[in-house]
Design a protein around this nucleic acid. Structure first.
Lengths: 243, 243
DNA sequence: ACTGAACCTTGATCTTGGTCAAATGCCGTG
DNA sequence: CACGGCATTTGACCAAGATCAAGGTTCAGT
């Protein structure tokens, strides 16, 4: 359903990969990249599939080539919270521990460029600039997480939903085919179900649905179908999302 | 008021510092540590003082020797959220950028072991194991932030307050003098005002106050005074906090 | 001891978002 | 086409926590 863009590398062709200068690989020069290429392999998951279980070993790292990964935490009674989304170019996997710290699930159909755990850690050791890059990407993940803490703790339901849609407008070019560069209103598919959106925003599906209806009535967005958004007034969306 | 423990190093004595093997310094051996010692200096702040402003340059990094730092984000209309607390042994400052990403404020009286920005970055370059340590500490900050996202998005007011108190029982030995190793109920001072607790938990001060009263009535905790907690039933506190 | 400011607690009331329930729409399959 | 399952929407009602409004405590400064 998703995943039709041609940014993905053909096997063994890191040099020409669309992510070459945007994912962790950017830390390496062409020669060094060969080392990475040698250990890389493709992996795909269907939407809804579990990629890693909390506390269970995960034997590889990966760049997201295509699709969206959700990382979730769960309370004993089943309440769930999505604690992070990974988009194309993002790095999946936790260095220096074998157990995954959260459950990772394919929110959409997914393509990964994967590296076996131990081989990749050897490369981290061999190339400090790779580890440096990982530190920088971890720091920016931390910023994102804290931005979301502000949303979860202090924003209203309307601001939350608007913030999420606004986030997607910024990452839509990455997460799905879209008309970002064309004229007319910005249109893109939602990578998450209403349930997932609720779990990401700390709301219920009913509230998410009502707030979407509300934004629709205000003329800020419209729905092509229930999973395809068209942003009519990006400025307004940004205003409503509250900074 | 706080800050009476003797873990702090005397100036120029990293080797005998109580944090030697617990803070970032642990990444370096005794010889390498001299390099760090040479650039280190003490800094103190009074409770309530601003340590760094969001978006403003911060010209040093620091280990927390004593006290607690709160990092906050604010919406345009003044709504606030504390997005992280730093306790003794934690590392303050963001590598590779000069601007602080959040406002940092001394929640209690504070003592820091500070390193000038550029000198420290030179050491990061010289000693990859120091950068490695920084990556590990950033990853654990990320875990903490995501744990808090679950709390903010999905826990009830009672669970939130219990979780915070439970967190303190785990870090009380770090944040303040306490009787953790003695017999009897665990007693420690709260490093935050009710307002700060509310900003950390995504609640109002009234709700925080009511939930504390509630826990008191249940016999889980008692208040020596409004800023000193005694945990009567640690098990119960853990249960209520919801895993 | 008196005063004012901060901080904390408590009560009464209101509102936002949750809960419960039902209806609608959208496939994919027999 | 009819059926069943799933995602989404909508409505009616409810409750957790926010808001508004007093009071109480503590403490520094006079």
């Amino acid at each position: 359903m998703h995943a039709t863009r041609q940014v993905a590398p053909s096997m063994g062709a890191c040099q020409t990969c669309g992510l070459r200068h945007r994912a962790v690989c950017a830390a390496l020069n062409d020669t060094e990249l060969d080392d990475l290429q040698r250990i890389s392999h493709r992996k795909s998951f269907e939407a809804g599939t579990t990629v890693a279980l909390e506390g269970e070993p995960m034997d590889y790292f990966a760049n997201i080539l295509n699709g969206v990964v959700k990382m979730t935490k769960t309370l004993a009674d089943g309440r769930q919270q999505i604690v992070g989304l990974l988009f194309p170019t993002d790095f999946l996997g936790r260095a220096f521990v074998t157990e995954a710290p959260y459950r990772a699930e394919a929110a959409t159909d997914l393509e990964l460029c994967a590296f076996p755990h131990s081989s990749f850690e050897q490369l981290l050791h061999k190339y400090p600039q790779l580890e440096h890059r990982l530190l920088e990407s971890t720091l920016s993940e931390l910023d994102t997480a804290r931005e979301w803490m502000l949303l979860l703790g202090r924003k209203t339901a309307e601001e939350k939903v608007a913030s999420f849609l606004h986030l997607l407008t910024k990452r839509a070019d990455l997460s799905a085919p879209c008309n970002a560069n064309q004229d007319g209103p910005l249109r893109f598919p939602l990578p998450l179900t209403r349930t997932d959106m609720a779990d990401y925003l700390g709301l219920t599906i009913e509230t998410v649905s009502r707030q979407i209806t509300r934004l629709k009535k205000q003329g800020v967005i419209s729905l092509v179908d229930s999973r395809t958004i068209e942003v009519a007034a990006l400025e307004d969306l940004e205003d409503i999302s509250g900074g």
